[in-house]
Write a protein that binds this DNA or RNA. Sequence first.
DNA 1: ATGAAAGCGCTAACAA
DNA 2: TTGTTAGCGCTTTCAT
Lengths: 332, 332
Amino acid sequence: MANIKQIAKMASVSPATVSRVLNNHPYVSDAKRKAVLDAVECLNYSKNLNAIHLSKGKTNIVGVILPFINHAYFSKLLEGISSEALNANYQLMLCQTNYDPNEELKALDMLKMKQVDAIIVCSKILQWEQIEPYSKFGPLVACEDAGKPTISSVYLDHYSSFRMGMQYLIDRGHTRIGICLGRANSVNSLKRIRAYKDTLKAIQEPLREEWIFYQCLNIEDGVGVVHKILEMNERPTALMVTSDQVAAGIIIEAGKKRIEIPHDLAIIGFDNQPIAKMFDLTTIDNQLFTMGSLAFQIAHDQIMKKTQAPENRELEFRLIERSTVSRYRLRN
Amino acid sequence: MANIKQIAKMASVSPATVSRVLNNHPYVSDAKRKAVLDAVECLNYSKNLNAIHLSKGKTNIVGVILPFINHAYFSKLLEGISSEALNANYQLMLCQTNYDPNEELKALDMLKMKQVDAIIVCSKILQWEQIEPYSKFGPLVACEDAGKPTISSVYLDHYSSFRMGMQYLIDRGHTRIGICLGRANSVNSLKRIRAYKDTLKAIQEPLREEWIFYQCLNIEDGVGVVHKILEMNERPTALMVTSDQVAAGIIIEAGKKRIEIPHDLAIIGFDNQPIAKMFDLTTIDNQLFTMGSLAFQIAHDQIMKKTQAPENRELEFRLIERSTVSRYRLRN
DNA sequence: ATGAAAGCGCTAACAA
DNA sequence: TTGTTAGCGCTTTCAT
């Protein structure tokens, strides 16, 4: 592969001039510019990005840390990130961690090793305390409430959104409400559990631990939820399901088991994915695409030093009323 | 940030020795090794990957070209690629093209500019003739039948799989069969159209252009298909749907419109996604995960020069019999 | 407007 | 076993 020196020689100019032409710098005579361009053409020259990255100390790459790729939540988030990256002419380095702490650490190291200009954390298993030190090496943006003002973040108030959803159910006569969560210890789950408990207390309902379903991540997980409910003596009349996929799974399985929705079981989903619309599922839109694109924008701004201080953006949620919660009040 | 020279100075050794320690080379005395490691610790040193990449002329990164991220087909494929990458300690550079030829070209340039060691093309809009020249700069692996023995590929025989699916329907009494495709001009669609036409000819059925539904990519697209069918005087009794998501959409909408499946409309999906299982959808498994992991393996092998010649692997498909095609023969 | 030359930080061939 | 040194290919400052 040709390099800048060979171009210089062929065009009878210095490497510096070649560099200037290649980077559209001013102060190059048209004659020399043409000579360089011709040589580039002739030798089928291409820049070596590694050399550029080294020399500039910058890569135009942003790292994205996420546990799984094949999951609607992360796909939508990633789509938001990607669309902005495309916009800003940035590349994306994908780091799938499977929630393995070592993989997460390895991914963070990319920032330290200057392989990426910034990192976006979609979800993590490490404590923020372990992650925070890396912000010394470059912008770090979280797609959840990091709870640290020193780390930039884009997030939703999952406590409030959960309470709002529950209140919506309560207003329609529900008191026996169950919930489906993802990982038990994720930042979001913990907030939702708190919201759940606080709401129950407010309406003076007892907490039934068995009505909290964990590890509900994929559409298939909805099946298990329905089966468990069927085995219960005391069944919830409504479910807050923190994933539209899982909610869809519940609806499908409920249909097979002759549980009528919303009559026997009301359901509120989360994410407002396409599947929610298909099932006419009442859901809470948490703006994943926007979250992703904003996360990238913040990372990009920080790289460009437009903003110095960490930025923390809270997104609005909104409940989308559809048909999986009856609009009529339950008879008592 | 500290560099190798400073480590060398602090440990009173040469940069070369530091490099040796850092890369676990033999022939370093324990004393020096320890001194280096201490200095590394003390200065909180980290390698600069850009320097390493430049020096080695290799990056341990593979580029992945795909049109969309938020799409079940590509998510599953990407998951396969990613799992192998994790395995091989390789990073993934994601290049979303939106089927924009310029973006595709830019992504291919990464190979030329030595930013990636190889490229995996999940789907493309350019002609293979335009892509092929890039293989001069490094391994190029296609996740479809490139039709060029000079390009490595992992693919399914979509012609045969389509014919097999149609034969399955024919054996059960169907002759009025429609099909749902994605992009009209994709490599896979063209083969499927050919299979469709050949099969119709074989059973002496006329070709009805209106029974070929294009642009069926997402679950919502199933709605339109059902509506169009409802407006037809002559309706198909069965549908080959080249995406389980779309098939699911059709099933849902058909339910709303009181079209009974499989009685009024039999359906065969493609991909064998989780959603297919949920809907008990008869589908053709085309091994996306395997395709992805194999694509990475081939790319990796080529990088490591284990294999020189392009490798072309054909994957087996298999039909998964579930309930959206009746097992009983239709009465005539 | 142009060129010389000193980095950027690491690797590896060669010498010792 | 260790050090010296010449790359890797580009950018950028400083002269001119």
